[in-house]
Write a protein that binds this DNA or RNA. Structure first.
Lengths: 334, 334
DNA sequence: CACTTTTTTGCAAAAGCGTGCAACCGACAT
DNA sequence: ATGTCGGTTGCACGCTTTTGCAAAAAAGTG
């Protein structure tokens, strides 16, 4: 066995010549301890290398300070950016982040949430995946607060953070129209997540409203390779589109690369492209992609603010954030 | 107060008509319980929605099952890829990952490690930052196992995972020579991490050994923008280099973009470029970058294998992994 | 100095779990 | 019938902390 010999509050108390409770109070903000006692305790703690045991503390308080981040595709630019903001802000709020990756297998989120419950996480933030309604129920029943980002389940007691995907998609139609595009198209993946579908809906309806021709193609998983495949399918038609809105920047990067290097189509000369997320690569000069910015810091700060604010006015709450269009060079005539 | 009312083992025991120990043993793998008792307990647990309290369990066992991941620049492609592998493998090993992001401020890693100790983490994996020797000592003193990735501190009781950076850098010199490059250069950041410096050393010494001209430039933080600035500095010289090894793929992407779009230099026609990490973008056709692959799955699996294998034969251990050269189109004549 | 008020301190209970020890139960051999 | 043995089960204690309560100490007041 690993001889892990932690020093306990008792040992500190003995060395400092005070009671165990005095030690406890010293490390509890807002507790009543005299300056002298605190000094003696701190000194002893330092000498012995004492650290509060958050496990025991959480056990007592029924509040672990742990927030569970349940996320699939961590290695994706948008997700990892959001992850960074969330962990940083949670740390500043005195919480600690427990990271659970879910692959695309079915029971994956389920297992993750059970794990979270076993560690008595105060809350879970779900960045992805398809959480079963029953599982979310389970979370809530065990007193866990739930933040759902870019999902549209209607669960009481949760915070929902969404974007104005549909309206945003409408705005890009206007941009394409102003650039003189005739035949629009939407490039989507087969993931079918609420935000992707909302963008598709918004784009198609806005295009139709303007009387423009519009087509939709879906393929594979939401990544660079799918973007390439979509380009191959859409750009080999006899009447190929000249304004393509990709559901995601990653799709857009793949699409643009295939268009330029495989079909020698100039962007934005012969083809306008827009994406969504404003990942770092969108600003790289090889792409210079016009896209919608995910308000990652706003998302993260709303989420942790809601978690930190423990007033149980919790009833279902829903926040809608605005996705700002970032003009770059992949659409003619900014 | 959030009325968090968890169901305890006692309640399950009452409902199942057994003692609390029976419940405990049911959820402890390898404990002695009859099939009948286990069934009754499981049934009651299911009905009541019972979940083992890992906080209390960790308190008893002095083993929390928590592994702390201390990482800076989470949103970076290489880091997030490694993060994904680590969390996935830790989960499969029955551990859980606690993520601590460190910004580049000084006391940041320090605070992170203290947090880890307070939660009685079984181990910490440090992907970055500059952990003070004294802090590492603190970790070890509190029985925490430590994995250091791409660092060169020599601490007993830790696992060090490194790459053959220096040799790899030597191999790319050969590649440049074969491509007919005359004037080599190394593009580095000012971060000064052990692996970056090892690549620089390896490249310079190998080039000199072949009697080739070689220069070094360092600028800023290890990212895309620094790559662009480095390109501006190096490509405006009267005698500009024709073979540039960038310390990192991100630097290389910035470098290539500036070279092509700002200076209209063709890659690999007039300029050969190589990078390091093999991030996803390196394979995108806009870059098609020849680079060294970080063996992320090997790194992750070595790390968690060492952690899972609790034999305390721990004495300082050091693993050196091989970085394979991935040939793509940014160097002439594959 | 005596009295009241406030602050500080120690005690003991509580939280939920694991586990050594002893008791117990049924089966089997003598 | 008695002894033995392997497997189960319950009891009680241990882990580390927080916190209500009451005692003690300190401070303030007349």
């Amino acid at each position: 066995m690993s001889a892990r010999d932690f020093v306990s509050a008792q040992e500190v108390a003995d060395r400092a010549g005070v009671s165990r409770s005095a030690v406890s109070r010293t490390f509890t903000p807002g507790a009543s301890v005299s300056a002298e006692t605190r000094r003696r305790v701190m000194e002893a703690a330092e000498a012995l290398g004492y650290h509060v045991n958050e496990l025991a503390r959480g056990l007592m308080r029924n509040e672990s300070g742990i927030v569970c981040l349940i996320v699939s595709d961590v290695a994706t630019p948008y997700r990892s950016a959001l992850l960074r903001e969330l962990t940083l802000m949670l740390q500043n709020a005195g919480k600690v982040a427990m990271l659970i990756s879910t692959d695309r297998s079915d029971g994956s989120v389920d297992r993750a949430l059970r794990q979270a419950i076993r560690y008595r996480a105060d809350a879970s933030i779900i960045l992805s995946g398809m959480p079963d309604k029953s599982i979310a129920q389970l979370c809530l029943r065990s007193g866990q607060r739930l933040v759902l980002i870019n999902r549209d389940d209607e669960q009481p007691g949760t915070l929902q953070i969404n974007l104005d995907d549909q309206e945003a998609a409408g705005r890009v139609v206007t941009a394409f129209a102003r650039a003189g595009c005739q035949r629009l198209a939407f490039a989507n993946s087969e993931a079918g997540t609420p935000s992707l579908m909302a963008r598709e809906r918004g784009f198609v309806t806005a295009a139709r409203a303007l009387g423009m021709e519009v087509s939709v193609e879906r393929y594979g998983w939401t990544g660079y390779d799918a973007g390439r495949v979509l380009a191959q399918r859409m750009l080999t038609r006899t009447q190929r589109p000249d304004g393509v809105f990709c559901a995601t920047d990653l799709l857009a990067c793949g699409f643009m690369d295939a268009a330029r290097h495989q079909f020698s189509i100039s962007v934005p000369g012969q083809l306008c492209v827009a994406g969504f997320d404003d990942i770092e690569q969108a600003s790289w000069s090889s792409y210079d992609l016009t896209t919608f910015a995910q308000p990652v810091v706003a998302i993260a700060s709303k989420a942790v603010a809601w978690l930190a604010n423990m007033t149980p006015d919790d009833g279902e709450q829903s926040i809608r954030l605005h996705a700002e269009l970032v003009w770059r060079g992949s659409i003619r005539g900014g």
